[in-house]
Amino acid sequence: MNTNWRRIILWALNAVGAFVGAWALAAPRSFYDAFPAPGLFGAWVGVDGPYNEHLVRDVGSLYLALFAAGVVAALMRRADASVAVGVAWLVFSVPHLIYHLGHLHEFEPIDAVAQSISLAAPIVLAIPLCLPPRRRTVIGGRTVTGGRTVTGGRTVTGGRTVTGERTVTGGGEAR
């Protein structure tokens, strides 16, 4: 996957992290009573036990930490940074989804479906971030991708051998 797609995915995840994190941290009681959207869905947090300000603020801080790491990765434009953020989202989101799938009986059908989709979305977005970057080769100042065989320090392109190349991985440094 190229750097532009990685950045698009990072900014989508960043939007989730900023929205959830800022609301839970700044207004924990409102988050507990009304998340995800007052009047549009039922309260998803409030049905899962008594209000606990400490827990809600901690969840807000966790989402803001994911947001901050995602912003750094998006601005760095390096594949390795986006891989780390993707792994962090998966480590959080997979158990989060599993827990909530086991507690859907507490919700109206529309809320159960919407919650499942909204909790699966970060997983679907994070998986491609964990894929290795596409390898690129720089030949004489030109970047070419895919379909090349590198042997003994030489790149074979369409039956012709080119020397003096550098292999670049996903926006990182030349190797």
Rank of each mutant, 00 (worst) to 15 (best):
P122H: 09
S82V: 11
E165F: 09
I110E: 15
I127A: 12
V138R: 14
V124R: 04
P109H: 03
R6F: 08
G49E: 02
F19H: 10
L101D: 07
L129P: 02
A121I: 15
P109F: 09
A126Y: 08
T163I: 11
A79V: 10
D80L: 07
R142Y: 02
I139F: 11
T155I: 13
E173D: 13
L129N: 05
Y99H: 11
S118Y: 10
V72C: 02
R78M: 05
L64C: 00
A74N: 11
G171P: 07
A114P: 03
A120M: 13
V20E: 01
W44M: 00
L131E: 06
R29I: 03
V168N: 03
A12W: 03
D58F: 05
R78L: 10
S93Y: 06
I9Y: 08
T151H: 10
V113G: 08
I110N: 14
E165D: 05
M76E: 12
R78W: 07
S30H: 12
P38M: 07
A37E: 14
A79E: 05
G21T: 06
F92P: 04
L13Y: 11
L131I: 11
L64R: 04
D58G: 05
S61L: 15
A37R: 04
E106H: 14
C130P: 07
G42S: 13
R29V: 03
N2M: 11
A65P: 05
V124Y: 11
T167W: 13
V162L: 12
T155R: 14
A114S: 15
G141D: 05
T145Q: 06
R135E: 14
G46Y: 00
S30W: 10
F19V: 12
H103A: 13
R77Q: 09
E108S: 15
A74Y: 06
Y32N: 03
V45K: 08
G102R: 00
V56T: 04
A174S: 15
D80N: 09
A120H: 02
